[in-house]
């Protein structure tokens, strides 16, 4: 009896909370009109809207809530295909991280876009893209929630200078799978990345923005200095 009471209580709370919460969240993303202007930077490759087709990049209708690399008929990079298989879903959080720095988020993506660095610009762009996906204010259970959770790293973490000797020791753990010679069959190469890209990628795993259970586990227990040490070591690896 006590169990049933508790279930009912939880359910009632969820129902009561849902509509208000989602409407609030949807309003939070950004300025969609301004986002439409920013989309000018993307429209050379991507189409969006009722007539949209795949072009140099895939069409972006319905991107929210979709598994990565899932538009039929588009030839994705190996790396985005892999991310999709590993379970990457495009949510506000993951799209934000991708648009901020595509190559850091999915090394090997064919999207030759350097990234939209300004947080407000990204929010506005995503608010515009969001209009072409199922909207939470219309469909309460639709992905995504518009929860703001940016994968940003404070400057002091990015500025950490890693100890290459520590990095050399820690790297032993990476090199059981990732080959020092840069071979990438089955498992991607991690040698000679720019340090900042390496640090951002590892923190993206640590925050579970990038999918993959092994990497989430490995990055999850690395401290900030340890990630910096690895970045310093792999950036200079010449083997």
């Amino acid at each position: 009896m006590a169990g049933r009471g508790a279930t009912c209580l939880a359910l009632c709370l969820a129902l009561a909370g849902a509509p208000g919460t989602t409407a609030l969240r949807a309003a939070e993303i950004g300025d969609a009109e301004r986002g439409a202007e920013i989309f000018g930077e993307c429209s050379g490759c991507h189409e969006i809207g009722p007539e949209a087709e795949n072009a140099i990049g895939p069409k972006l209708n319905g991107v929210f809530g979709r598994r990565a690399a899932a538009v039929d008929g588009f030839a994705y990079s190996k790396s985005l295909t892999r991310a999709g298989r590993d379970g990457l879903i495009w949510t506000l959080k993951t799209l934000d991280a991708y648009v901020a720095n595509p190559r850091t988020f999915a090394s090997g993506t064919r999207m030759s876009y350097p990234g939209l660095k300004d947080e407000t610009d990204r929010a506005d762009l995503l608010a515009f893209l969001r209009d072409y996906s199922d909207r939470p204010r219309d469909i309460p259970e639709a992905e995504p929630t518009a929860r703001r959770s940016l994968p940003e790293l404070p400057p002091d973490i990015l500025a950490l200078k890693g100890d290459p000797a520590y990095g050399e020791y820690l790297a032993g753990e990476c090199q059981t799978c990732h080959r020092a010679d840069g071979g990438d069959a089955g498992i991607p190469s991690i040698t000679r990345w720019p340090e900042e890209d390496f640090v951002l990628a590892m923190h993206a795993y640590k925050q579970k923005l990038r999918p993959h259970p092994v990497m989430q586990m490995m990055a999850g227990r690395l401290a900030e200095e340890e990630i910096a040490a690895l970045a310093a070591y792999f950036a200079t690896l010449t083997e």
């Binding site: 892999r82 298989r85 032993g172 090199q175 059981t176 799978c177 080959r179 020092a180 071979g183 089955g186």
Partner: peptide, 21 residues
């Protein structure tokens, strides 16, 4: 099936990696 295939391919990458290590 796609994830299982990817996991197998990952194991091939691991074998190449660990034997080189």
């Amino acid at each position: 099936a796609a994830l299982r295939k990817a996991t197998y391919e990952e194991s091939l990458g691991w074998y190449a990696g660990i034997t080189a290590d």
